[in-house]
Design a protein around this nucleic acid. Structure first.
Lengths: 113, 113
DNA sequence: CTGCATCCCCCTTGATACTG
DNA sequence: CAGTATCAAGGGGGATGCAG
């Protein structure tokens, strides 16, 4: 099955919505590599984010099947967040995005035709 | 130069901001392949977008060096939009994103550990 | 046809305080 | 430690009207 620009746009549009928001990608980057991070660890890793935003984005991504939430029933509470297989599979895409981002400075050739 | 998850997040974050918004990716998809589209053609290609959003996102991306604006000084006015080389180089990233998006349905294995 | 300006809504984000 | 509740602010985005 091939994808036309139209249908491709449709498909990606949905994916994009899952990644939208000011913090999701940042969170994902901290989770890549199969790392499991506690709520507080993520908080410390991303100082600029508020608890509300962190939990909100996390929940959203969990609902979308990108991240998993692992609850350890103990005192004090311990909850870890990681990526699902699908979430892990986002790595190539994000990496490509990173490559692109780094192409900004060098060899910037505005002429497109 | 290697990139830590932290610095990678920082770099991509800026790239992401350029792609953020409900319509930018959709617009980009219609422009991939070196296609030049007129304003009205883009409008028709993306019925759900308003003129304001279209021109706004276009301008933004032009400012960011992703798209080029080609004005034909004639009557009636004719303006075409296309991708810069840098914009074209986004293709792999978007394609990877597309691959990811299409992995949703098949082989969906939530178990991540 | 192309593009900009204005008004308006409301969702996202954010700051703070509180609970289990 | 983890998560929720509430209130306030800003910007994204929609509808409409106007101009070159």
């Amino acid at each position: 099955m091939e994808h036309t620009p139209l249908s491709a746009a449709e498909g990606v549009e949905e994916a994009i919505r899952m990644l939208e928001g000011r913090w999701k990608l940042v969170i994902l980057f901290h989770l890549f590599g199969g790392k499991l991070l506690r709520f507080s660890e993520l908080e410390r890793a991303i100082p600029a984010i508020s608890q509300k935003m962190l939990i909100q984005q996390l929940r959203q991504m969990e609902k979308d099947g990108i991240v998993t939430r692992i609850v350890h029933h103990q005192v004090p509470p311990k909850v870890e967040y990681g990526l699902t297989n699908w979430g892990q599979s986002l790595c190539p895409a994000l990496d490509a995005l990173l490559q692109w981002a780094e192409r900004r400075d060098p060899a910037k050739d505005e002429s497109q035709g």
